[in-house]
Amino acid sequence: MTMPDDIHSLSGAYAVDAVDDIERAQFESHLEHCAACREEVASLRAAAAELGTLTVEEPPPSLRGDILDLVGTVRPEPPHVAERSLRTRRWGWVVAAVAAVVAVIGVGVAQPWDTSPEQLTVAEQVDRAQDADRVALSFDDGSEATVIRSASVGRAVIETRDMAPPPDGHHYVVWLQSPDGTMHAAGVMPDDESDASMVLHGDATESVGAGITVESDPDVTAPTTEPIALFEFT
């Protein structure tokens, strides 16, 4: 059984980037509330940095000019001054990073069906809506997740296949992203179902995307870790 001890022991591997993207997301979620691990990671990184004295090598002289020219064209980012702007920026930034581990396998529009909405569940209404927008992601471990959003129905649904359970004491929290970048909690994935279908809470009419984070507190009101998956609506 995975115990808290187990997650602490990842500090060394995390400090030297010897973790995969999922482990990194999980450990960073743990770091949010474990001062001992934050301290340990900082000290182990400092120790690892000393190893850099063993591999000193002068770069080719041309590199200096190339790099100096390059920075002349780039504006340094401002310091983090407010929690809110931090979150928005982190979330935006991570889109590119996550895109690297995730491949979009399909974006399509569902066929309309000639069934009256009254007989259908919300999930079915979304699924069969003329404007249903599906974003399907497949992960390195073979699992898949699809978010279907219908602006006309105003709701979104997430479906997963072969999802590994979250680490003990953690949950997959799903978020809907507003056009201004704010994330709204839209539900917690059932922990014991690898193949799940869940209607997301909240109005999805205006949402620009959905995301999943690994959280220790299922009632968290804003993401505390970087998302393990992001779904961008068209």
Partner: peptide
């Protein structure tokens, strides 16, 4: 190396000396 220095330039304001030494931050 070019990417690294570009990131150091771009994120220099995010360096927090209370959390790590400069060399440790750069090496990370």
């Amino acid at each position: 190396t070019q990417e690294v220095y570009l990131e150091l330039w771009r994120h220099a304001a995010h360096f927090d000396p209370s959390r790590a030494s400069a060399i440790s931050w750069m090496f990370t």
